[in-house]
Write a protein that binds this DNA or RNA. Sequence first.
DNA 1: AGCACGCCGACT
DNA 2: GTCGGCGTGCTC
Length: 827
Amino acid sequence: MEKTSYAEVVVNNRSNQTNMTYTYGIPKDLSDRVSIGSRVMVPFGKGNKLVEGYVLSKDEGLSIQLSKIKYIQRVLDEESLLSEKMIDLCKWMREEYLCTYMDAIQCIIPTGISYKTEKKIRLCRDVSMEEWGQGGFTDRQWAVMKVLRKHPNVSEDALRQLLDFDPSSTLRSLEAKNIIFIEYQLKNNVSILTEKVIRLSAKEKIHEEISKLNQNAKKQKQLLEYLANHGEIAWSKLKESLDISPSTIESLTKKGLVHVETVEKRRVPYGDFPVEATGPHGLTEEQKKVVEQVIPHIMDAKYQPFLLHGVTGSGKTEVYMQIIDQVLKQSKEAIVLVPEISLTPQMIERFKGRFGNNIAVLHSKLSLGERLDEWNRIKNGEVKIAVGARSAVFAPFHNLGIIIVDEEHEHTYKSESSPKYHAVEVAEFRCRQHGAVLLLGSATPSLESYYKAEKGEYKKLVMQNRYNQNDLPSIQIVDMRTELQKGNKSVFSESLYREIKQNLENKEQTILFLNRRGYSTFISCRNCGYVAKCPHCEISLTYHKNVHYISCHYCHYRQQPPDICPKCGSKYIKYFGAGTEKIEKVTGKLFPTAKIIRLDLDTTSRKGSMERIMQEIKQGKADIIIGTQMIAKGLDFPNVTLVGVIAADMNLNLPEFRAAERTFQLITQVAGRAGRGRRMGRVVVQTYDPEHFAIQASQNHDFISFYEQEILMRKEFLYPPFSRLINITIAGTKESEVIKTADHFATALRQRMGSEKIPSEETVFGPSPAPLSKIKEKYRWQIVIKSKLIDQTALKGIINNIRNDITDRNYANDISISIDVNPFHML
DNA sequence: AGCACGCCGACT
DNA sequence: GTCGGCGTGCTC
């Protein structure tokens, strides 16, 4: 007999102070419904307010005083929401990223499923004017009662909005007088859709039954025949598709031939997009070799990571799909991560075409309900493949065979908000759990991954040839300094101009890449040096000519550009720096007959506009495509033969250890957009720093030589992969408070690391102002820890303690502390 | 995080 | 007394 009677429960509070498990008793009548991973409601706190919680484990004994124990009040779902493996993942994330249990759980369960409790207030007896006249009520109490008369059942939050004071203590006194009644109500955002369907009760002898029916029962016969062929029909479709009324069902039910069932219905987010079914392609020798190396490891169910270094256009997607075929044959499941789903529509289409209904696509544009349904399809085994961006790494499969991470080096795999997890790190953890294969693919692997491959931690796979047998595009580096000396002040060098012109004559498409949107990047007074900056951020404002305002790309503040300098009154205001909008303008002037399309955040923010623009490019409605980062990835247009990189060194001088890596990756990625069809591609790279090794290496498509130079730098300055970084950012509206807290944090950190004898390879830098020292009215200071330790548990423990100490004591009112483990960048 | 409790000053 | 405001500490 089962003996367990206590459960360790995590309570749904997004607070560091409740970041632990609480022991609850399991009432006898719930004992078979409470299992590990169950979602439950438990009484919590002094008021025994019901809150949502998650059962992490069950105990036989009791570890705390019996008097303290409370009991689980109810179980919320039929089945447990978190498998034991997922719970282990939560525990690992909590320690790895210094987040709360709930932060981690929220990554795993679909958003919107959580219950919130809302405090609702009702008047239980009204107070007459006379009673009021006799006194005994304060103005505030009266004000509250007045609101309650108008709104009989308001939440406390809504009440607060309607009043000009905080009603909490007033409510307390009114409750004591028995005038109001406070209760808690559960609220949640999405529900599982259900639908009634009609099914046959006795399938085997149905034809026999049909023949026994009365000759007049035409409708009954028709329905039974339909069901014999199709299995079921939805109640809602009865009328429209078969013209059968409920009474037919009723009489058939009475005869025991059919019954009505309620089943879960899935919302189908992409139902209206029929995709052409496609089969596997033949593989090149190189591709075949890669597939053959991976397959055996899917069968043996042992964790095995691979790094697939394949040049752009080498046919990685086809390799992924053929490996997944094998995974399915082993009745295992696959997750495919892509950097940003909206930027890789072509890849998604190919997956849908190949795997049809066996695939769930997770992306940010899904509604809460759609997301829940996709999640359930995965959890219930209705699909075997999940494709999506970062968060798809949490797809609730039970029997994972592989996780594929395409464009493994992309920064979008690192979460920007707590928990600041990296999808590749999570993928690695899950693959270890399942004994699955981890396949990281990239044309320009991250330094960290390639280093691991070199050390043998990852198995290296290589594809050096393009699928279409074309050579990689030729890359020409243009020194913009000599252009300037020649008197060319335009954004186009002579040779880029010539190449574009030639492309137009040949009726081939051109991509121009500039990683910066807007018209001018900053405006400045030539008299006094004033620069227009955002009043809320430490950022200069970008001029957008189409809409004629200057705006902040961090907080979206906007204003009219000044005609005269607000500082010195001079009228010598000048616009500097070029963005995509300006390139568009200049290009239009230089090539008046060319059809130009701009592809950046400003032109694609409306829903569906991205898809429309892509379609237009495909149909040849554009000669020149101008865009930011978003054109660097995944686009596959065979008629593009020329790529121009307007300013290759733009990111090179950022205060960031990944600057060179980012530059190399970007040039290589954009260059890869050229020459995907039959014709050879050409690339022109404009730069003021042509000698830089990142640019030199990209000219020869030489990742290895780039890697070898960059890795030396990393080693010398002790950057990843030779150390691990932790970035602690302290932010708040009062700079003095921010500095005070940051100082306090750093001092405590140094002290505790000293007294706990954490080796001296651990170095604490700062506090110092963050590179973006003010965003949205908040000053930001940071502390950076560079650590060579493999095991960081002790160090993280200290950081966590100090953080809790500071937030506990309210020492840091209005101050937020954000901890980023393995940050991608320091901004 | 939320919430109760307890203390203190102010007001009736 | 009782109300309202605020700091403190706890939640199985």
